[in-house]
Design a protein around this nucleic acid. Structure first.
Lengths: 253, 253
DNA sequence: GCGGGTTGTTACGAACTGTTACGCGGTCTT
DNA sequence: AAGACCGCGTAACAGTTCGTAACAACCCGC
Protein backbone atom coordinates (compact mmCIF):
# COMPACT_ATOMS: atom_id res chain seq x y z
CA UNK A 1 0.00 0.00 0.00
CA UNK A 2 2.82 2.38 0.69
CA UNK A 3 5.81 2.97 -1.49
CA UNK A 4 8.61 4.47 0.39
CA UNK A 5 11.27 6.55 -1.28
CA UNK A 6 10.93 4.94 -4.67
CA UNK A 7 9.36 7.11 -7.33
CA UNK A 8 9.82 10.07 -5.08
CA UNK A 9 8.79 13.54 -6.10
CA UNK A 10 10.98 16.36 -4.99
CA UNK A 11 9.63 19.79 -4.26
CA UNK A 12 11.59 22.26 -6.33
CA UNK A 13 14.92 21.02 -5.13
CA UNK A 14 14.09 20.61 -1.46
CA UNK A 15 15.28 17.47 0.19
CA UNK A 16 12.57 14.92 0.65
CA UNK A 17 12.51 12.65 3.62
CA UNK A 18 11.13 9.19 3.31
CA UNK A 19 9.58 8.69 6.68
CA UNK A 20 7.37 6.00 8.09
CA UNK A 21 3.82 6.98 7.21
CA UNK A 22 1.92 8.12 10.23
CA UNK A 23 -1.61 7.20 11.00
CA UNK A 24 -3.91 10.12 10.36
CA UNK A 25 -4.37 12.45 13.33
CA UNK A 26 -7.19 11.48 15.61
CA UNK A 27 -8.53 14.98 16.18
CA UNK A 28 -12.16 15.69 15.50
CA UNK A 29 -11.43 18.28 12.80
CA UNK A 30 -9.88 15.72 10.51
CA UNK A 31 -12.10 15.74 7.40
CA UNK A 32 -12.23 11.99 7.02
CA UNK A 33 -10.04 9.01 7.44
CA UNK A 34 -10.68 7.48 4.08
CA UNK A 35 -9.81 10.56 2.03
CA UNK A 36 -6.58 11.00 3.88
CA UNK A 37 -5.77 7.38 3.28
CA UNK A 38 -5.32 8.24 -0.38
CA UNK A 39 -2.26 10.25 0.55
CA UNK A 40 -0.73 7.44 2.56
CA UNK A 41 0.56 5.91 -0.65
CA UNK A 42 2.75 8.93 -1.28
CA UNK A 43 6.09 9.63 0.26
CA UNK A 44 6.43 12.10 3.09
CA UNK A 45 8.11 15.32 1.99
CA UNK A 46 9.66 17.98 4.15
CA UNK A 47 9.12 21.65 3.34
CA UNK A 48 11.29 24.17 5.20
CA UNK A 49 9.60 27.12 6.83
CA UNK A 50 8.60 29.94 4.46
CA UNK A 51 9.15 27.81 1.36
CA UNK A 52 6.35 27.36 -1.13
CA UNK A 53 4.42 24.14 -1.62
CA UNK A 54 2.76 25.42 -4.77
CA UNK A 55 2.47 28.72 -6.59
CA UNK A 56 -0.42 30.88 -7.63
CA UNK A 57 -1.06 30.50 -11.34
CA UNK A 58 0.66 27.14 -11.59
CA UNK A 59 -1.22 24.27 -13.09
CA UNK A 60 -2.76 22.38 -10.18
CA UNK A 61 -1.53 18.94 -11.10
CA UNK A 62 -1.34 17.79 -7.49
CA UNK A 63 -3.18 18.03 -4.19
CA UNK A 64 -1.37 18.14 -0.88
CA UNK A 65 -2.01 16.88 2.57
CA UNK A 66 -0.51 18.65 5.54
CA UNK A 67 0.80 15.89 7.78
CA UNK A 68 2.63 18.12 10.21
CA UNK A 69 3.08 21.85 10.58
CA UNK A 70 1.08 24.82 9.32
CA UNK A 71 0.68 26.06 5.74
CA UNK A 72 -0.61 29.49 4.68
CA UNK A 73 -2.63 30.12 1.52
CA UNK A 74 -1.84 33.58 0.24
CA UNK A 75 -2.30 35.94 -2.64
CA UNK A 76 -0.16 38.91 -3.54
CA UNK A 77 -1.85 42.00 -4.88
CA UNK A 78 0.39 44.71 -6.24
CA UNK A 79 2.76 46.91 -4.25
CA UNK A 80 3.64 44.36 -1.63
CA UNK A 81 0.16 43.79 -0.31
CA UNK A 82 -0.49 40.22 0.76
CA UNK A 83 -3.69 38.52 1.82
CA UNK A 84 -3.72 35.16 3.58
CA UNK A 85 -6.99 33.46 2.80
CA UNK A 86 -6.50 30.41 4.99
CA UNK A 87 -4.19 28.49 7.29
CA UNK A 88 -4.03 24.74 6.82
CA UNK A 89 -3.16 22.49 9.73
CA UNK A 90 -2.22 18.86 10.19
CA UNK A 91 -4.80 16.70 8.48
CA UNK A 92 -6.00 19.42 6.10
CA UNK A 93 -5.98 19.03 2.34
CA UNK A 94 -4.55 21.83 0.21
CA UNK A 95 -6.06 22.33 -3.22
CA UNK A 96 -9.20 20.25 -2.88
CA UNK A 97 -11.09 23.08 -4.51
CA UNK A 98 -8.73 23.91 -7.32
CA UNK A 99 -9.33 22.65 -10.79
CA UNK A 100 -7.26 24.56 -13.30
CA UNK A 101 -4.62 26.75 -11.74
CA UNK A 102 -3.90 27.46 -8.09
CA UNK A 103 -5.60 30.72 -7.10
CA UNK A 104 -3.12 31.00 -4.22
CA UNK A 105 0.45 30.37 -3.25
CA UNK A 106 0.79 27.85 -0.42
CA UNK A 107 3.77 28.43 1.85
CA UNK A 108 5.00 26.61 4.91
CA UNK A 109 4.60 28.70 8.04
CA UNK A 110 6.65 26.22 10.03
CA UNK A 111 8.69 23.37 8.70
CA UNK A 112 6.10 21.00 7.35
CA UNK A 113 5.66 17.38 6.47
CA UNK A 114 3.38 16.94 3.51
CA UNK A 115 2.21 14.28 1.11
CA UNK A 116 1.11 14.86 -2.44
CA UNK A 117 -1.16 13.06 -4.82
CA UNK A 118 -1.91 13.79 -8.46
CA UNK A 119 -5.23 15.43 -9.12
CA UNK A 120 -5.97 12.82 -11.72
CA UNK A 121 -5.51 9.97 -9.25
CA UNK A 122 -7.38 11.82 -6.57
CA UNK A 123 -10.40 12.55 -8.74
CA UNK A 124 -10.58 9.09 -10.24
CA UNK A 125 -10.37 7.50 -6.80
CA UNK A 126 -12.97 9.83 -5.37
CA UNK A 127 -15.45 9.59 -8.21
CA UNK A 128 -15.13 5.84 -8.24
CA UNK A 129 -15.86 5.39 -4.57
CA UNK A 130 -19.21 5.76 -2.87
CA UNK A 131 -17.38 6.21 0.41
CA UNK A 132 -14.92 8.87 -0.71
CA UNK A 133 -17.31 11.00 -2.75
CA UNK A 134 -19.45 12.17 0.19
CA UNK A 135 -16.26 12.76 2.16
CA UNK A 136 -14.96 14.93 -0.64
CA UNK A 137 -18.21 16.88 -0.80
CA UNK A 138 -18.09 17.32 2.95
CA UNK A 139 -14.57 18.67 2.71
CA UNK A 140 -15.58 21.20 0.06
CA UNK A 141 -18.56 22.20 2.18
CA UNK A 142 -16.42 22.79 5.25
CA UNK A 143 -13.94 24.88 3.30
CA UNK A 144 -16.69 27.07 1.98
CA UNK A 145 -18.25 27.49 5.39
CA UNK A 146 -14.84 28.59 6.62
CA UNK A 147 -14.52 31.05 3.73
CA UNK A 148 -17.92 32.54 4.51
CA UNK A 149 -16.99 32.81 8.17
CA UNK A 150 -13.80 34.61 7.26
CA UNK A 151 -15.66 36.99 4.97
CA UNK A 152 -17.95 37.90 7.85
CA UNK A 153 -14.93 38.50 10.04
CA UNK A 154 -13.20 40.70 7.47
CA UNK A 155 -16.40 42.49 6.64
CA UNK A 156 -17.86 43.36 10.01
CA UNK A 157 -15.57 42.67 12.92
CA UNK A 158 -13.22 45.08 14.65
CA UNK A 159 -9.62 44.43 15.55
CA UNK A 160 -10.34 42.82 18.91
CA UNK A 161 -13.07 40.57 17.57
CA UNK A 162 -10.86 39.49 14.69
CA UNK A 163 -7.99 38.56 16.93
CA UNK A 164 -10.20 36.72 19.42
CA UNK A 165 -11.88 34.83 16.57
CA UNK A 166 -8.48 33.88 15.26
CA UNK A 167 -7.27 32.64 18.62
CA UNK A 168 -10.42 30.57 19.15
CA UNK A 169 -10.07 29.10 15.68
CA UNK A 170 -6.41 28.38 16.29
CA UNK A 171 -7.22 26.70 19.58
CA UNK A 172 -9.68 24.36 17.91
CA UNK A 173 -7.87 23.72 14.64
CA UNK A 174 -4.20 24.15 15.33
CA UNK A 175 -4.20 21.93 18.37
CA UNK A 176 -5.98 22.40 21.65
CA UNK A 177 -4.17 24.45 24.30
CA UNK A 178 -4.85 21.77 26.89
CA UNK A 179 -5.47 22.15 30.60
CA UNK A 180 -2.72 24.71 31.07
CA UNK A 181 -4.24 26.98 28.41
CA UNK A 182 -0.94 27.36 26.63
CA UNK A 183 -1.71 28.04 23.00
CA UNK A 184 1.04 27.67 20.44
CA UNK A 185 0.97 30.34 17.74
CA UNK A 186 3.23 29.08 14.95
CA UNK A 187 2.67 32.05 12.64
CA UNK A 188 4.33 35.43 13.11
CA UNK A 189 2.58 38.76 13.56
CA UNK A 190 2.73 39.61 9.87
CA UNK A 191 0.98 36.35 9.00
CA UNK A 192 -1.74 37.05 11.54
CA UNK A 193 -2.13 40.61 10.26
CA UNK A 194 -2.45 39.51 6.64
CA UNK A 195 -4.95 36.83 7.64
CA UNK A 196 -7.13 39.20 9.64
CA UNK A 197 -6.91 42.18 7.31
CA UNK A 198 -4.99 44.30 9.81
CA UNK A 199 -1.48 45.62 10.21
CA UNK A 200 1.22 44.10 12.30
CA UNK A 201 1.10 47.02 14.72
CA UNK A 202 -2.63 46.67 15.29
CA UNK A 203 -2.14 42.98 15.98
CA UNK A 204 0.49 43.81 18.58
CA UNK A 205 -1.60 46.53 20.16
CA UNK A 206 -4.66 44.30 20.34
CA UNK A 207 -2.73 41.48 21.96
CA UNK A 208 -1.34 43.94 24.47
CA UNK A 209 -4.83 45.16 25.32
CA UNK A 210 -6.05 41.59 25.84
CA UNK A 211 -3.01 40.99 28.02
CA UNK A 212 -3.74 44.13 30.05
CA UNK A 213 -7.23 42.79 30.69
CA UNK A 214 -5.75 39.47 31.83
CA UNK A 215 -7.50 37.47 29.11
CA UNK A 216 -4.28 36.16 27.64
CA UNK A 217 -0.64 36.28 28.67
CA UNK A 218 2.01 36.30 25.93
CA UNK A 219 4.88 33.95 26.66
CA UNK A 220 7.46 34.61 24.01
CA UNK A 221 6.50 35.26 20.41
CA UNK A 222 4.88 31.97 19.66
CA UNK A 223 3.02 31.13 22.83
CA UNK A 224 -0.05 32.62 24.38
CA UNK A 225 -1.49 31.46 27.65
CA UNK A 226 -5.26 31.62 27.55
CA UNK A 227 -6.34 32.76 30.99
CA UNK A 228 -10.06 32.87 30.30
CA UNK A 229 -11.24 31.04 27.24
CA UNK A 230 -14.87 31.90 27.88
CA UNK A 231 -14.16 35.62 27.75
CA UNK A 232 -12.18 35.09 24.57
CA UNK A 233 -15.16 33.31 23.03
CA UNK A 234 -17.51 36.08 24.01
CA UNK A 235 -15.25 38.66 22.40
CA UNK A 236 -15.43 36.97 18.99
CA UNK A 237 -18.36 39.12 17.98
CA UNK A 238 -20.48 36.19 16.87
CA UNK A 239 -24.20 36.38 17.40
CA UNK A 240 -24.16 32.99 19.07
CA UNK A 241 -21.86 34.49 21.69
CA UNK A 242 -20.41 31.94 24.01
CA UNK A 243 -21.37 28.31 24.38
CA UNK A 244 -20.01 26.62 27.43
CA UNK A 245 -19.35 23.46 25.47
CA UNK A 246 -16.40 25.26 23.88
CA UNK A 247 -14.75 25.18 27.27
CA UNK A 248 -15.12 21.47 27.61
CA UNK A 249 -14.11 20.76 24.05
CA UNK A 250 -10.94 22.74 24.56
CA UNK A 251 -10.29 21.17 27.91
CA UNK A 252 -10.26 24.47 29.72
CA UNK A 253 -12.43 24.39 32.79
CA UNK B 1 -39.70 16.89 -18.97
CA UNK B 2 -41.41 19.82 -17.35
CA UNK B 3 -44.28 19.63 -14.96
CA UNK B 4 -46.13 22.86 -14.73
CA UNK B 5 -48.14 23.82 -11.71
CA UNK B 6 -48.82 20.30 -10.58
CA UNK B 7 -46.98 19.22 -7.46
CA UNK B 8 -46.11 22.80 -6.79
CA UNK B 9 -44.01 23.90 -3.86
CA UNK B 10 -44.87 27.20 -2.28
CA UNK B 11 -42.28 29.35 -0.62
CA UNK B 12 -43.54 30.07 2.87
CA UNK B 13 -46.85 31.38 1.71
CA UNK B 14 -45.68 33.42 -1.24
CA UNK B 15 -47.66 33.07 -4.39
CA UNK B 16 -46.03 30.82 -6.91
CA UNK B 17 -46.34 31.51 -10.60
CA UNK B 18 -46.36 28.63 -13.01
CA UNK B 19 -44.58 30.17 -15.93
CA UNK B 20 -43.26 28.74 -19.14
CA UNK B 21 -39.77 27.48 -18.39
CA UNK B 22 -37.14 29.64 -19.99
CA UNK B 23 -34.11 28.40 -21.73
CA UNK B 24 -31.04 28.96 -19.61
CA UNK B 25 -29.34 32.31 -20.17
CA UNK B 26 -26.74 32.32 -22.87
CA UNK B 27 -24.16 34.41 -21.04
CA UNK B 28 -20.66 33.09 -20.58
CA UNK B 29 -20.82 33.05 -16.79
CA UNK B 30 -23.50 30.36 -16.77
CA UNK B 31 -21.86 27.42 -14.96
CA UNK B 32 -23.07 24.78 -17.35
CA UNK B 33 -26.11 23.94 -19.36
CA UNK B 34 -26.49 20.39 -18.18
CA UNK B 35 -26.53 21.18 -14.46
CA UNK B 36 -29.11 23.88 -14.95
CA UNK B 37 -31.21 21.47 -16.95
CA UNK B 38 -31.86 19.61 -13.69
CA UNK B 39 -33.86 22.58 -12.48
CA UNK B 40 -35.98 22.76 -15.63
CA UNK B 41 -38.17 19.99 -14.24
CA UNK B 42 -39.23 22.21 -11.37
CA UNK B 43 -41.87 24.88 -11.45
CA UNK B 44 -40.88 28.51 -11.67
CA UNK B 45 -41.49 30.35 -8.41
CA UNK B 46 -41.68 34.07 -7.82
CA UNK B 47 -40.02 35.60 -4.79
CA UNK B 48 -40.88 39.23 -4.01
CA UNK B 49 -38.03 41.64 -3.35
CA UNK B 50 -36.48 41.42 0.12
CA UNK B 51 -38.19 38.11 0.90
CA UNK B 52 -36.14 35.12 1.90
CA UNK B 53 -35.54 32.10 -0.27
CA UNK B 54 -34.01 30.11 2.58
CA UNK B 55 -32.89 30.83 6.09
CA UNK B 56 -29.61 30.47 7.91
CA UNK B 57 -29.69 27.42 10.14
CA UNK B 58 -32.50 25.74 8.23
CA UNK B 59 -31.95 22.24 7.01
CA UNK B 60 -30.77 22.53 3.42
CA UNK B 61 -33.23 20.17 1.85
CA UNK B 62 -33.26 22.02 -1.46
CA UNK B 63 -30.99 23.84 -3.87
CA UNK B 64 -32.14 26.84 -5.85
CA UNK B 65 -31.45 28.23 -9.25
CA UNK B 66 -31.82 31.93 -9.86
CA UNK B 67 -33.66 32.23 -13.16
CA UNK B 68 -34.23 35.95 -13.05
CA UNK B 69 -33.29 38.71 -10.63
CA UNK B 70 -30.61 38.99 -7.97
CA UNK B 71 -30.31 37.14 -4.66
CA UNK B 72 -28.09 38.12 -1.73
CA UNK B 73 -26.47 35.62 0.64
CA UNK B 74 -26.20 37.17 4.06
CA UNK B 75 -25.39 36.49 7.66
CA UNK B 76 -26.49 38.48 10.66
CA UNK B 77 -24.05 38.88 13.51
CA UNK B 78 -25.37 40.42 16.69
CA UNK B 79 -26.53 44.00 17.16
CA UNK B 80 -27.83 44.55 13.67
CA UNK B 81 -24.58 43.89 11.82
CA UNK B 82 -25.07 42.16 8.50
CA UNK B 83 -22.53 40.74 6.10
CA UNK B 84 -23.42 39.85 2.53
CA UNK B 85 -21.09 37.10 1.40
CA UNK B 86 -22.29 36.88 -2.20
CA UNK B 87 -24.75 38.07 -4.80
CA UNK B 88 -26.26 35.44 -7.05
CA UNK B 89 -27.42 36.37 -10.53
CA UNK B 90 -29.48 34.73 -13.24
CA UNK B 91 -28.10 31.28 -13.93
CA UNK B 92 -26.40 30.92 -10.55
CA UNK B 93 -27.08 28.05 -8.17
CA UNK B 94 -27.75 28.81 -4.52
CA UNK B 95 -26.70 26.21 -2.00
CA UNK B 96 -24.46 24.05 -4.16
CA UNK B 97 -21.97 24.04 -1.32
CA UNK B 98 -24.27 23.44 1.58
CA UNK B 99 -24.65 20.02 3.06
CA UNK B 100 -26.29 20.16 6.45
CA UNK B 101 -27.74 23.55 7.28
CA UNK B 102 -27.63 26.79 5.32
CA UNK B 103 -24.78 28.95 6.63
CA UNK B 104 -26.55 32.01 5.20
CA UNK B 105 -29.96 33.51 4.60
CA UNK B 106 -30.71 34.01 0.91
CA UNK B 107 -32.92 36.99 0.19
CA UNK B 108 -34.26 38.39 -3.04
CA UNK B 109 -32.69 41.76 -3.85
CA UNK B 110 -35.14 42.30 -6.65
CA UNK B 111 -38.25 40.28 -7.41
CA UNK B 112 -36.85 36.96 -8.50
CA UNK B 113 -37.84 33.93 -10.46
CA UNK B 114 -36.31 30.81 -9.03
CA UNK B 115 -36.51 27.06 -9.38
CA UNK B 116 -35.79 24.58 -6.65
CA UNK B 117 -34.68 20.98 -6.59
CA UNK B 118 -34.28 18.64 -3.65
CA UNK B 119 -30.72 18.05 -2.54
CA UNK B 120 -31.31 14.34 -2.66
CA UNK B 121 -32.38 14.42 -6.29
CA UNK B 122 -29.58 16.82 -7.19
CA UNK B 123 -26.87 14.71 -5.60
CA UNK B 124 -28.14 11.43 -6.98
CA UNK B 125 -28.37 12.90 -10.47
CA UNK B 126 -24.93 14.48 -10.23
CA UNK B 127 -23.13 11.50 -8.77
CA UNK B 128 -24.74 9.23 -11.31
CA UNK B 129 -23.68 11.25 -14.31
CA UNK B 130 -20.19 11.51 -15.76
CA UNK B 131 -21.26 14.71 -17.48
CA UNK B 132 -22.77 16.45 -14.48
CA UNK B 133 -20.12 15.53 -11.94
CA UNK B 134 -17.31 17.58 -13.48
CA UNK B 135 -19.73 20.43 -13.98
CA UNK B 136 -20.61 20.30 -10.31
CA UNK B 137 -16.95 20.28 -9.32
CA UNK B 138 -16.35 23.22 -11.63
CA UNK B 139 -19.20 25.10 -9.99
CA UNK B 140 -17.76 24.50 -6.53
CA UNK B 141 -14.35 25.58 -7.76
CA UNK B 142 -15.68 28.83 -9.17
CA UNK B 143 -17.55 29.63 -5.99
CA UNK B 144 -14.44 29.13 -3.93
CA UNK B 145 -12.35 31.24 -6.26
CA UNK B 146 -14.95 33.97 -5.84
CA UNK B 147 -14.83 33.59 -2.07
CA UNK B 148 -11.03 33.91 -2.08
CA UNK B 149 -11.26 36.96 -4.33
CA UNK B 150 -13.73 38.55 -1.95
CA UNK B 151 -11.52 37.79 1.03
CA UNK B 152 -8.66 39.57 -0.70
CA UNK B 153 -10.92 42.53 -1.37
CA UNK B 154 -12.13 42.70 2.24
CA UNK B 155 -8.67 42.14 3.59
CA UNK B 156 -6.52 44.53 1.61
CA UNK B 157 -8.47 46.92 -0.57
CA UNK B 158 -9.54 50.47 0.24
CA UNK B 159 -12.98 51.94 -0.34
CA UNK B 160 -12.34 53.01 -3.92
CA UNK B 161 -10.79 49.69 -4.93
CA UNK B 162 -13.66 47.80 -3.34
CA UNK B 163 -16.30 49.79 -5.14
CA UNK B 164 -14.53 49.58 -8.49
CA UNK B 165 -14.06 45.84 -8.05
CA UNK B 166 -17.74 45.51 -7.28
CA UNK B 167 -18.78 47.50 -10.33
CA UNK B 168 -16.52 45.48 -12.61
CA UNK B 169 -17.88 42.25 -11.15
CA UNK B 170 -21.42 43.50 -11.53
CA UNK B 171 -20.75 44.46 -15.12
CA UNK B 172 -19.55 40.98 -15.95
CA UNK B 173 -21.95 38.91 -13.84
CA UNK B 174 -25.09 40.94 -13.48
CA UNK B 175 -25.41 41.71 -17.14
CA UNK B 176 -23.09 43.67 -19.40
CA UNK B 177 -23.64 47.43 -19.53
CA UNK B 178 -23.60 47.30 -23.32
CA UNK B 179 -22.37 49.91 -25.75
CA UNK B 180 -23.93 52.80 -23.88
CA UNK B 181 -22.14 51.82 -20.69
CA UNK B 182 -25.32 51.99 -18.65
CA UNK B 183 -24.90 49.58 -15.75
CA UNK B 184 -27.95 48.54 -13.80
CA UNK B 185 -27.34 48.29 -10.05
CA UNK B 186 -30.30 46.34 -8.64
CA UNK B 187 -29.09 46.38 -5.04
CA UNK B 188 -29.39 49.40 -2.78
CA UNK B 189 -26.55 51.24 -1.05
CA UNK B 190 -26.91 49.25 2.16
CA UNK B 191 -26.54 45.99 0.24
CA UNK B 192 -23.42 47.27 -1.46
CA UNK B 193 -22.02 48.48 1.85
CA UNK B 194 -22.64 45.15 3.58
CA UNK B 195 -21.11 43.29 0.65
CA UNK B 196 -17.98 45.43 0.56
CA UNK B 197 -17.49 45.74 4.31
CA UNK B 198 -18.15 49.48 4.32
CA UNK B 199 -20.87 51.84 5.47
CA UNK B 200 -23.57 53.31 3.31
CA UNK B 201 -22.00 56.76 3.64
CA UNK B 202 -18.61 55.61 2.47
CA UNK B 203 -20.28 53.97 -0.52
CA UNK B 204 -21.97 57.27 -1.31
CA UNK B 205 -18.79 59.26 -0.86
CA UNK B 206 -16.82 56.91 -3.05
CA UNK B 207 -19.39 56.97 -5.84
CA UNK B 208 -19.40 60.75 -5.66
CA UNK B 209 -15.63 60.87 -5.98
CA UNK B 210 -15.70 58.57 -9.00
CA UNK B 211 -18.40 60.76 -10.48
CA UNK B 212 -16.33 63.89 -9.85
CA UNK B 213 -13.50 62.27 -11.75
CA UNK B 214 -15.85 61.51 -14.62
CA UNK B 215 -15.34 57.77 -14.38
CA UNK B 216 -19.00 57.03 -13.76
CA UNK B 217 -22.17 59.09 -13.85
CA UNK B 218 -25.01 58.11 -11.51
CA UNK B 219 -28.38 58.16 -13.22
CA UNK B 220 -30.93 57.59 -10.53
CA UNK B 221 -30.37 55.17 -7.67
CA UNK B 222 -30.13 52.01 -9.68
CA UNK B 223 -28.24 53.04 -12.77
CA UNK B 224 -24.64 53.99 -13.28
CA UNK B 225 -23.24 55.06 -16.58
CA UNK B 226 -19.69 53.76 -16.99
CA UNK B 227 -17.79 56.50 -18.77
CA UNK B 228 -14.41 54.82 -18.76
CA UNK B 229 -14.40 51.12 -18.07
CA UNK B 230 -10.66 50.84 -18.51
CA UNK B 231 -10.01 53.34 -15.70
CA UNK B 232 -12.51 51.46 -13.54
CA UNK B 233 -10.60 48.23 -14.16
CA UNK B 234 -7.30 49.83 -13.27
CA UNK B 235 -8.73 51.11 -9.99
CA UNK B 236 -9.68 47.62 -8.80
CA UNK B 237 -6.36 47.24 -7.03
CA UNK B 238 -5.58 43.89 -8.58
CA UNK B 239 -1.99 43.09 -9.38
CA UNK B 240 -2.94 42.15 -12.90
CA UNK B 241 -4.12 45.73 -13.36
CA UNK B 242 -6.01 46.30 -16.54
CA UNK B 243 -6.36 44.01 -19.52
CA UNK B 244 -7.76 45.64 -22.60
CA UNK B 245 -9.77 42.54 -23.37
CA UNK B 246 -12.11 43.56 -20.56
CA UNK B 247 -13.15 46.49 -22.71
CA UNK B 248 -14.03 44.31 -25.61
CA UNK B 249 -15.72 41.71 -23.48
CA UNK B 250 -17.90 44.38 -21.94
CA UNK B 251 -18.58 45.95 -25.30
CA UNK B 252 -17.31 49.36 -24.25
CA UNK B 253 -15.35 51.21 -26.90
C1' DG C 1 28.18 34.08 26.18
C1' DC C 2 28.12 37.77 23.09
C1' DG C 3 26.78 40.62 19.07
C1' DG C 4 23.99 41.41 15.08
C1' DG C 5 19.88 40.79 12.63
C1' DT C 6 15.22 39.80 12.80
C1' DT C 7 10.87 40.22 14.93
C1' DG C 8 7.81 42.37 18.01
C1' DT C 9 6.19 46.36 20.92
C1' DT C 10 4.96 50.96 21.86
C1' DA C 11 4.07 55.88 20.87
C1' DC C 12 2.43 59.53 18.14
C1' DG C 13 0.53 61.86 14.25
C1' DA C 14 -2.05 61.20 9.93
C1' DA C 15 -5.41 59.19 7.01
C1' DC C 16 -9.25 56.87 6.31
C1' DT C 17 -13.57 55.32 7.60
C1' DG C 18 -17.48 55.41 10.87
C1' DT C 19 -20.93 58.23 13.25
C1' DT C 20 -24.27 61.54 13.59
C1' DA C 21 -27.16 64.91 11.76
C1' DC C 22 -29.65 67.21 8.24
C1' DG C 23 -31.78 67.94 3.68
C1' DC C 24 -33.67 66.34 -0.61
C1' DG C 25 -36.62 63.62 -3.59
C1' DG C 26 -39.42 59.85 -4.32
C1' DT C 27 -43.13 56.58 -2.92
C1' DC C 28 -46.78 54.99 -0.15
C1' DT C 29 -50.63 55.85 2.83
C1' DT C 30 -54.61 58.15 4.44
C1' DA D 1 -53.23 65.85 -2.59
C1' DA D 2 -50.87 66.27 1.93
C1' DG D 3 -48.24 63.96 5.10
C1' DA D 4 -45.17 60.43 6.60
C1' DC D 5 -41.76 57.30 5.49
C1' DC D 6 -37.81 55.47 3.12
C1' DG D 7 -33.63 55.66 0.56
C1' DC D 8 -29.94 58.43 -0.60
C1' DG D 9 -26.56 62.30 -0.61
C1' DT D 10 -23.80 65.62 1.90
C1' DA D 11 -21.29 67.54 5.62
C1' DA D 12 -19.04 68.04 10.21
C1' DC D 13 -17.19 65.51 13.69
C1' DA D 14 -15.37 61.48 16.12
C1' DG D 15 -13.14 57.16 16.28
C1' DT D 16 -10.46 53.42 14.77
C1' DT D 17 -6.92 51.90 12.30
C1' DC D 18 -2.79 52.89 9.71
C1' DG D 19 1.98 54.50 9.01
C1' DT D 20 6.28 55.93 10.66
C1' DA D 21 9.67 55.62 13.88
C1' DA D 22 12.19 54.45 17.95
C1' DC D 23 12.89 51.04 21.23
C1' DA D 24 12.85 46.30 23.20
C1' DA D 25 12.94 41.31 22.95
C1' DC D 26 14.13 37.28 20.79
C1' DC D 27 16.86 34.18 17.85
C1' DC D 28 20.85 32.93 15.51
C1' DG D 29 25.56 32.26 14.61
C1' DC D 30 30.12 32.64 16.01
Amino acid sequence: MLMQGKNAFEIAGYAREAVQPRTSPSRGSTPCQSLLALFQMSALETVPASKAVCWEGDSASHLFQVVEGVVRLQRIIGEGRRAITAFQYAGDVVGAFVQGEFPFTAEAVTECKIRRISRKTFLSEVTGSDVLRPEYIKLLCEETAAAHEQMVLLSKKNAEERLCSFLVELASRGGAPGQTGLLQVPMNRQDIADYLGMTIETVSRTISKLAARKIVVPEGRHNLRIICFSRLSRLCGNADAFHSENCHRMGIH
